[in-house]
Simulated scan of single mutants.
Amino acid sequence: MEDRGAHAYWVILACFFGALVLAIAPLPRSLLLLRPEWVALVMIYWSMALPHRVGLVTALCLGVLLDVLEGAVLGQNAASLVVVSVLVLLLYQRVRVYNLWQQSAVVFVLVSISQMVSQWLQKLEGLHASQSLIFLLPAVASALIWPLIFHVLRRVRRSFRVT
């Protein structure tokens, strides 16, 4: 019997790589505020599906990598993804039994918290932070796209038998 452990990690890493590519893909200026938080969405899914494989260390590594790719202050995305990861690991058993629209509401709250942590850290660093709630638009986009992300990643998980 083959070892599926290494195989499972490659599938998860490929999903995170795809999310990182989508996170830095160029968009028109008018659509930048509507870009879903791809890395957070993929991390939320894998943390809920496989909490024993994807957790705080994964969130920290992804956050630092996203900081480097985006040119953000080192630790900004890492801190927000770690906060989201902690919340998902605390809530995953409850969220799993919700229907997709309830899960979308939870995703909205989680991504909003992530955005608020990022805004707070930007304010502490003296960078320009949004003066209105417009910075929450990516959370709305993420919540709206969650059902699609959920179905695609679940199909990937089942077809590659990631456990």
Rank of each mutant, 00 (worst) to 15 (best):
M1K: 15
D3M: 11
R29A: 00
P51D: 01
S142T: 05
S104D: 13
A14P: 07
V54K: 07
T58N: 03
A23E: 15
L90I: 05
M43I: 05
L34F: 02
W101V: 02
W120N: 07
M48K: 00
F17Y: 14
R154S: 06
P147Y: 11
V156Q: 05
A72H: 04
I12D: 06
P51F: 00
W146R: 06
S80A: 13
A23D: 15
V111D: 05
V39K: 00
L27K: 01
G75K: 08
P28N: 12
V64N: 07
E2C: 04
H7I: 07
V111C: 10
H128L: 10
L137W: 13
L153Q: 14
L127I: 08
S142V: 09
W46K: 03
N77G: 05
L66Q: 13
I113T: 00
A141V: 07
R29G: 00
V117C: 10
V83M: 15
R161K: 15
L62T: 05
F16D: 10
L31K: 00
T58L: 00
A139T: 02
L144M: 13
R161S: 09
P147Q: 13
L124E: 13
V107Y: 04
N99E: 01
I24Q: 01
L133P: 01
L33N: 14
R29M: 01
A143F: 12
H7K: 09
G71T: 12
S118A: 11
Y98H: 09
A78I: 05
Q122I: 04
R4K: 13
L148D: 03
P138L: 04
Q103W: 08
V11D: 11
F108Q: 03
G126C: 10
C15Y: 04
W120Y: 09
S159L: 15
I24N: 03
A141G: 04
V117D: 12
S114I: 01
S142K: 11
R94H: 15
Q122K: 13
R96V: 01
V42T: 05
L91N: 08
L33A: 11
V73E: 05
S30C: 05
Q122M: 15
A105H: 08
A59V: 10
H128T: 09
A23K: 10
L91W: 15
H52E: 15
W46N: 04
S85L: 04
I44G: 02
S104T: 06
G75W: 02
V83E: 10
V152S: 11
A105T: 02
P36C: 02
V95W: 14
V39M: 03
G71C: 06
L56R: 03
V106W: 15
R155Y: 09
S118H: 05
L74N: 08
V86I: 03
V140W: 12
F17D: 12
Q115V: 01
Q122L: 15
L33S: 12
W101A: 11
N77I: 03
R35N: 01
L124G: 10
Q93L: 03
L31F: 02
E2L: 14
S30H: 08
N99F: 10
A78T: 09
L33G: 09
L121R: 10
L144S: 03
V11E: 11
S114M: 14
L41P: 05
F17S: 14
S142Q: 07
F17V: 12
L31A: 01
E2F: 13
E2A: 12
P26T: 09
I145R: 06
